[in-house]
Simulated scan of single mutants.
Amino acid sequence: MTSTRRNTAVAFFDTFKTLSVQDAISIRTPTCRHIFTPASISPPPPLDNAQFAAHISRLKEIIASFPVTTKEISEDQEKNQVIIWATAQAEFHTELKDAGISDEEWAYKGEYVFILTMDETGQKIDRVVEFLDSKATERLRELMARARANK
């Protein structure tokens, strides 16, 4: 049987398929914080809901979809958390890809670990800790800059 926490985690990942700001914010508590890590990649500071919504909106300008595939998921009932090991692939808007690099080079894929802390109901996320793939994130930043320049 699937728990409410697990269903909420799946709903969180589903928002990356469409990059819908409304869907992403709807499953977060009003005080939710999104924390990117590790510090070695100079991540942005923690994002509140308004900042996270702006982040998703900026992504949507250059990325059509960012589907997440779960490799492993586990729950910590005591901490009311779901921990997910996943991969994700950025699918850039076709018109923003230039011929200067191949389609294979535009095909970004990264590996992530998410720790989602839920509210007491398990239906809303109160805190996200996202461990980014440090090597792949460097490449993603390059691709994003290139796509923005092509916009």
Rank of each mutant, 00 (worst) to 15 (best):
P67M: 01
D103N: 15
V129G: 00
E138H: 11
T15D: 05
E120R: 14
A50G: 01
E130F: 03
L140E: 12
V21S: 06
I35C: 07
A9D: 06
I63P: 09
P30A: 04
W85C: 05
T117H: 01
A147M: 03
F12V: 09
M118C: 08
A136C: 02
S65Y: 04
L59P: 04
S65P: 06
R127Y: 07
P43T: 11
R28N: 12
K151V: 01
I35D: 02
E105H: 08
M144G: 05
T4F: 01
T37F: 03
P30I: 13
A9L: 10
E105F: 00
D126L: 02
R139K: 14
K97H: 04
E61M: 09
P38T: 05
H93Q: 12
N80L: 11
L132W: 05
E61R: 13
V68L: 02
I35Q: 11
T94M: 00
P67S: 02
K17A: 03
Y112Q: 08
T117K: 11
E105V: 13
V10M: 06
P46N: 04
E142H: 12
M118F: 12
K135M: 07
R146P: 00
I63E: 07
L96R: 13
I35P: 04
P45Q: 12
C32W: 03
K109H: 06
P46C: 04
R6P: 00
D23S: 13
V82F: 03
V128I: 15
V128N: 08
Q51Y: 02
L132A: 10
N150M: 05
A88V: 09
V82R: 13
L132C: 10
M1L: 09
V21I: 15
L96A: 06
I35G: 04
D133Y: 07
A147E: 05
A136G: 11
M1G: 15
Y108N: 12
P67E: 01
E75C: 04
T18V: 06
G100Q: 15
E78G: 00
V129D: 10
A86P: 12
R33P: 00
A149E: 14
R33K: 15
T15W: 03
K79T: 03
L140C: 02
